[in-house]
Design a protein around this nucleic acid. Structure first.
Lengths: 340, 340
DNA sequence: CTGAAAGCGCTAACAC
DNA sequence: GTGTTAGCGCTTTCAG
């Protein structure tokens, strides 16, 4: 059997409660005994049992992240990779750990939530890109369960961390328009997903401000879907510029374009979102909007831990993280017949 | 307070022990009472508390994965993304969950192990690419802690799941040689990392079998490092072909090559490993060895769960997952001045 | 078949 | 200061 506080107490000739006190850093312990206890702990290589602690303290020190993506979809999406990696990194210096689950669809996701939080497996939840009609949020709030949302709260009062996607898309679109491209279209994600809807909005704002008509195509997330949609999109229209939902989908567009003999830039200018490493893999680089995910996640985690550890209900806060356009080759201006 | 078995027992007019039995699917419970209990559970939306279960059963149903990579390094590496995503997916139908931690370096990693398993936070561990001199393995075995290794066990008796990297590299190299390339070099990962050492070995085998001399460059993992090393590599030699450590690094090579005005294929043929989606992002496609990671992870998890759930110590098993070469444009044969 | 009772390892009053 | 005690919510003998 593993060594317990009981065991340490026996060795150090104190009560088990004293061992617990030493562990908790209680000041009211005689230095001699404290030393004896610490010594016994070291000698027996003692470690408190987190399961017992969890039961007693009602805290598992686990943060849950539930990703919803159809089969294998998260595998190659740099947004998720970056999200997970950053989350784990931010959590590292804290005492919390990351519990990662995957759900296939919304109903599946709900049941994962149930398993995770009704069974009290995690202390709090990080929600990503909640869909507009999401019922989860209401349940979570009713249960007074600590959670933060990464993405647009859609007017609901909760703790959210988000970019201004409308603004970001407007900025990206304006950049293309400023560079002299006129027939600028947009390849968006599925309707109903907030991040996509917002970017569509921003794109439309920019286009109408400048008096151009807009044209939006919707596609599922991911490389393959974007590639397929892009093929027909490029065939049916003669766009000069394209605002693409994210870098990962942009690589799909790149592939479709290459397949059709359309060169980017030159025949088609493109801007995208996320500023991931994929931007460097495309010839000449892909102009992309950096969403500052690192900052966003750091802030979100810090708030979540605050929620978990304080009993008081803090006022819902919405934090908007600024974006920054990273200009690369894909959005270069046409000058004469060549590129600038 | 949350609803407990006590509560359910009161409602259903049975003892708390009976509630527990119903939950455990114990057959020796009178149908009437069972119904009453199930009814009460449903009505009160009862869920067992996993913390209490964990303490009692001595099982948290958490599988630990500790990734070691320097700052942000895992973010864009498709191998890790694929590993995490596949792991989560394989775990999903089981009752186990994934606990993900990140470590900066080896010593850090050891302390993470301590926190994870001595404190009994997880039931078992998935180890990835253990370095040859790794002391962790010995500790884990001494503690009789359930774990599986993904990567080469280096002759140690443990449960491992691995590709034959020597064979894979030999196959990849032979493919280039068969296509008529002669001055074939290799861009490897850091020395001491088994997966890299093995691939170097396979490459050297192929070269010497055909009577060619070999030339190996070492670089850190990741895009940037590969890119830097590739620049000097391409400057200092006049290679016809390159065997690259993995797809992610291959994208770094691609970038360096483009920068130097070297076209792939044409001036330089390339083969790589992992067959990730990155292969499709490179002009004409990147020839790569598919390591069947999905299968590997599925098998590894299934073994790990077996180890956790059975007390008997099973014989160390080594499972070698077959690889498959996916030929794409980057390794095309030179015919006359053009490509075939 | 079922209830009573003994813990799992730890925390936190509550006494002394 | 320190020990005693009472649980956290659950599983599992052990009697009946």
């Amino acid at each position: 059997m593993r060594v317990t506080q009981q065991e340490i107490a026996r060795i150090a000739n104190v009560s088990q409660a004293t061992v617990s006190r030493v562990l908790a850093g209680d000041v009211r312990v005689e230095p001699e005994k404290r030393t004896a206890v610490l010594d016994a702990m070291k000698r027996s290589n003692y470690r408190p049992d987190v399961r017992a602690q969890a039961l007693r303290r009602k805290r598992t020190c686990l943060i849950g992240l539930v990703l919803k993506r159809s089969d294998g979809g998260i595998k190659d999406d740099p947004f998720f990779a970056s999200l997970i990696s950053e989350l784990a990194r931010v959590l590292k210096p804290s005492k919390y750990h990351l519990c990662l689950d995957i759900a296939r669809d919304s109903s599946d996701q709900s049941s994962v939530y149930d398993e995770l939080l009704r069974s009290r497996r995690v202390d709090g939840l990080v929600l990503v890109e909640p869909e507009a009609d999401d019922r989860r949020l209401i349940r979570l709030q009713e249960d007074r369960f600590p959670f933060v949302v990464i993405g647009n709260p859609r007017g609901r009062a909760l703790h959210s961390f988000d970019n201004d996607n409308v603004l970001a898309a407007r900025m990206a679109t304006m950049h293309l328009l400023d560079n002299g491209f006129r027939r600028v279209g947009m390849l968006a994600g599925p309707t109903g997903v907030t991040v996509s809807d917002d970017r569509v909005l921003g794109y439309r704002m920019a286009m109408s401000e400048r008096g151009f008509s807009d044209q939006v195509w919707h596609s599922d997330f991911g490389f393959e879907a974007a590639c397929t949609t892009a093929e027909s999109l490029l065939n049916d229209s003669n766009l000069e510029g394209l605002v693409c939902m994210d870098d990962f989908m942009a690589t799909g567009v790149t592939r479709a374009a290459r397949h059709l003999g359309i060169s980017i830039p030159g025949d088609l200018a493109m801007v995208s979102f996320n500023d991931s490493n994929l931007c460097n893999l495309i010839d000449g680089g892909l102009t992309s909007v950096n969403m500052n995910h690192e900052t966003m996640i750091r802030e979100a985690v810090s708030k979540l831990i605050g929620l978990i550890e304080s009993t008081e209900r803090s006022e819902p806060s919405r934090m908007v993280i600024p974006c920054e356009l990273k200009v690369r080759g894909s959005s270069m201006r046409k000058v004469g017949g060549g590129l600038l």
